[in-house]
Design a protein around this nucleic acid. Structure first.
Length: 593
RNA sequence: GGAGCUGUAGUGUAGCGGUUAACAUGCCGGCCUGUCACGCCGGAGACCGCGGGUUCGAUUCCCGUCAGCUCCGCCA
């Protein structure tokens, strides 16, 4: 028997006549009585193994008992099939292995679903049997894609002189930002570590340490509700550089992503990426992560609407609101039911209602058309570039309310109307000129849009105390096809400026020192100017893979409720464990207070 | 915390106020020497997610609940 293992999918005519040794799983068995075919699968693919009763009656009985997903070691001569039995659909379709010896390395229960691509199985079940799900070639391909993406990034950054440095996973909880995952300290009763939301502070300290070019492909944790593109633990490509400004970061990132797309997909992406100021993105797309793969931009009809006889519009505008709309091309055929569905969708997003006009050759059709003059209708038609056959929809609200509703409607309609073909290419976009702060009604203070370490634009620093909401940040997000894949900023590197920002955030000097004293202190020892960016690796790979959920590119993801169906975590722990950690668990009813 | 969608043999689906709950596939048994989603014959397999209500009667209608998914809030 040959000692070296061959891979099923890699056998070629070159190997004809050889006796090959294969190890793998049974994809399928076709039993013809005195002739049995087995499709044997390993990582590389499939090959057909033939057991012929006349050739080897002694092991034929054993072959009859073989079932799907049994693990086999087989050996036999690799031969050419008869021309009429060649399978064109299989790379190894002109070959087969005449079974000579067989060892069942393991048996297998019948799997709960088919181990093959394009299965349509409840995701619940796939997650519970993730190890079987991952056996499917398309899932392995995703693992591999992820590996290659990470490798391409590492190689690129290494080539540019970056150092990959590890930072602590057990760190301190800081205010601001997402909810922390806490880890109780056994040695210091009542104290807790937090798992990092990102290595933000450590990478800045590495800049103070003179590392100059740092990166890390690193797990991050945020205890917030999940989405299709959000998991409680996720992986960042985290980067930081000293002596850089925005343009340096943009150029590096554009090079890095070009390299990535070339290495992983063999595709060229156009650079430099276009840029859009945040206010313009909100106005034209109703979101800070515009999907540029289709049009249907948001239009403003506030001037026309404000003077119209339609009370809802008029009052909204009088109260400082806006009226904005979308032209849904060619959708004048929408039924009343479809329009009601859109209205409900809008209301669910916080709108008070949704107005609509059907544009017909005879003019506008709508229950509210009577409230508008001919001139006003003409004005609306002009702004939205409406033609017969179009559907116009409108939202009247405060600007900060109207924008997200219209942004969501735009995406909802694009999906519904299938305006997003899978191969519409990569539309990268830098979003810049974010406001540094925004006012939080609930907390009654300003909070950082990006994070508290982001530098204000120099010219706006005087406004920090007077008009905080007008201060622009030196922050930037990178958006790809409507998905935020990265974000970063130029940081504060001088203690005074960082303190001024803390102060604008409502931190007293004592609170600032208490929470971030170590950072402020570090800044006193010659901190260089620095800035950086972090990418969501999961999201990036999701887009590379053409998936619509990051769960597809995470081997063991969690459900929308944050549980792992495979290990059934989170789970209770023993009293002893709690005691050792100085913890008491409150009963559910106590929490109602 | 809120909204929507989904939940029927192992799997994917159908169905309906009264059915023997259907179909495909998988599974088990038998037959079969050129299949490759092999084929043919036979068989087993479902308390219709769970709880309650309406009804003479509920898998079907209503309410609640659980689970999964999507979205809003949340995510510096």
């Amino acid at each position: 028997m040959p000692k070296t293992r061959s891979m099923c999918g890699q056998l070629t005519r070159e190997n004809l006549g050889e006796e090959v040794l294969l190890q793998g799983w049974v994809q399928r068995r076709r039993d013809h009585g005195k002739l049995i075919f087995i499709d044997l699968r390993d990582l590389s693919g499939l090959v057909q193994v033939v057991a012929d009763y006349e050739e080897n009656a002694h092991i034929f009985r054993e072959v009859e008992d073989i079932r799907s997903e049994f693990v086999l070691e087989v050996s036999g001569r690799l031969v050419l099939r008869d021309p009429e039995t060649v399978n064109e659909n299989l790379p190894t379709g002109e070959l087969e292995v005449r079974l000579k010896s067989l060892e069942v390395l393991n048996t297998a229960k019948t799997p709960p679903f088919y181990i093959e691509d394009h299965v349509d199985v409840d995701e619940n079940l796939r997650l519970r049997y993730r190890y079987l799900d991952l056996r499917r070639p398309e899932m392995y391909a995703k693992l591999k894609l992820r590996h290659r993406a990470a490798l391409a990034v590492r190689n690129f950054l290494d080539g540019r002189g970056f150092l990959e440095v590890e930072t602590p996973m057990l760190t301190r909880s800081t205010p601001e930002g997402a909810r922390d995952y806490l880890v109780p300290s056994r040695i210091t009763p009542g104290s807790f570590y937090a798992l990092p939301q990102s290595p933000q502070l450590f990478k800045q300290l590495l800049m103070v340490a003179g590392a100059e070019k740092y990166f890390q492909i690193v797990r991050c944790f945020r205890d917030e509700d999940l989405r299709a593109d959000r998991q409680p633990e996720f992986t960042q490509i985290d980067m930081e550089m000293s002596f850089v400004e925005e343009e340096d970061v943009f150029a590096l990132v554009e090079d890095m992503l070009s390299h990535l797309y070339r290495e992983v997909l063999g595709r060229e992406i156009p650079t430099p990426f276009p840029r859009i100021p945040y206010p313009e993105a909100m106005l034209r797309f109703g979101t800070d992560k515009p999907d540029l793969r289709f049009g249907m931009e948001v239009k403003d009809i506030t001037p026309v609407a404000g003077s119209s006889g339609f009370k809802v519009f008029k009052q909204a505008v009088a109260g400082g609101g806006v009226v904005r709309g979308l032209n849904v091309k060619g959708c004048a055929h929408f039924s009343r039911r479809e329009l009601d569905e859109l209205t409900n969708y809008s209301i669910n997003l916080g709108a008070k209602g949704m107005a609509w006009f059907l544009v017909t050759p005879e003019g506008f059709k709508s229950p509210i058309v009577k409230f508008f003059t001919e001139d006003e209708l003409k004005g609306i038609k002009g702004i939205l570039e409406a033609e017969p056959g179009d559907l116009l929809i409108f939202i009247a609200d405060r600007p900060e309310k109207a924008a997200p509703v219209l942004g969501a409607l735009r995406l909802h309609l694009a999906r519904q109307l299938q305006l997003l073909p899978g191969d519409s290419g990569e539309h990268f976009l830098w979003v810049v000129d974010y406001p540094l702060l925004s006012y939080d009604e609930e907390e009654g203070r300003y909070t950082a849009n990006h994070h508290p370490f982001t530098s204000p634009v120099a010219a706006d620093i005087p406004l920090l105390n007077t008009e905080p909401s007008r201060v622009r940040a030196r922050a930037y997000d990178l958006v790809l096809n409507g998905v935020e894949i990265g974000g970063g900023s130029i940081r504060n590197h001088r203690r005074e400026l960082q303190e001024a920002v803390f102060s604008a955030l409502g931190f007293s000097p004592e609170e600032a020192r208490e929470q971030f004293g170590f950072l402020l202190k570090a800044f006193e020892f010659g901190a260089p100017p620095h800035g950086g960016i972090a990418f969501g690796l999961d999201r990036l790979v999701m887009l590379l893979a053409g998936s619509s959920s990051i769960r597809d590119v995470i081997p063991f993801p969690k459900t929308a409720r944050g549980t792992c169906l495979l290990t059934e975590s989170p789970a209770a722990v023993t009293e002893d464990q709690l005691k050792e950690l100085h913890l008491l668990v409150r009963e559910a009813e106590e929490e109602e207070e």
